[in-house]
Amino acid sequence: MTSETTKITKKYLTFFLAKEEYAVDILCVQEIKGWNKATTIPNTPDYISGVINLRGTIIPIIDLRLRFNLECQDYGPMTVVIVVKVVSSGKKERIMGIVVDAVSDVHDVAEDEIKPPPNFGSIISTEFVKGLATVKDKMVIVLDIDLLLNSQELAIVESLSDELLTEH
């Protein structure tokens, strides 16, 4: 890393999930709203809580606790939905909500302060973890939200949309 890149700091929004503090790039956060019951979509994995109406658009809600196989917890007054903008398969922007225990703070984190995650002992597959950073003597886990919300069930099935295109 050159001296130039060390100066690059980004703002991160941090939130709690089972007492651990996680961070996402604040530029992809669109808004934070309280939890409202979502409409479940049949035959989807548990971690997809369902869909909600966000001012006329239908957005899916993902429960991060369940996504990371953490212990399930009842939704309380602190439970919030962070609405994020995710870039999927190169171009397409999708809006999704993630359910977290509580939002915490906004921190400046320099790019080079993010250390690669250790390769063991985590229930979260490290592929979604951009790295670990220290903020005010606490460790936060920096997530790669684009990767996380385009994995598994949430991935856009390319071939399907291609099929639809060729049909017409």
Partner: peptide
Amino acid sequence: SLESNYKKIQGIFGATILGNGSVAL
């Protein structure tokens, strides 16, 4: 559309918003 932010689900044509603001498939 469900597809714009999520994806197509077999058996589900889309969604709508009911009078009380909730979503129905």
